[in-house]
């Protein structure tokens, strides 16, 4: 079980951002290389938001979740 290091607002923001990126990429709203980037990078905030754990936060010993 991963240790959650994201606050609720952080998780919601990540999920929303991830879905927006995926919609822009896969929905064809953004084309070219940027569209491809959005298509795959969109999964990063989505998954980290759903799981509640950010590897970058862990790396820098940072968290938005209150102790």
């Amino acid at each position: 079980m991963v240790k959650v290091n994201e606050a609720g607002w952080d998780r919601i923001a990540r999920v929303v951002l991830g879905i927006v990126m995926l919609v822009l990429g896969w929905g064809g709203f953004v084309g070219g290389w940027l569209g491809v980037v959005l298509q795959w990078l969109g999964f990063v905030p989505l998954i980290t938001g759903l799981v509640g754990w950010c590897p970058l936060y862990s790396l820098f010993r940072f968290q938005t979740k209150s102790a």
Partner: peptide, 21 residues
């Protein structure tokens, strides 16, 4: 409940995206 709803909403959004795209 908040996390559960967040995941359910995300699943629905991704499903709609799958159908639309």
């Amino acid at each position: 409940g908040q996390v559960r709803m967040l995941r359910l909403g995300s699943a629905l959004a991704v499903l709609l995206l799958a159908i639309a795209a």
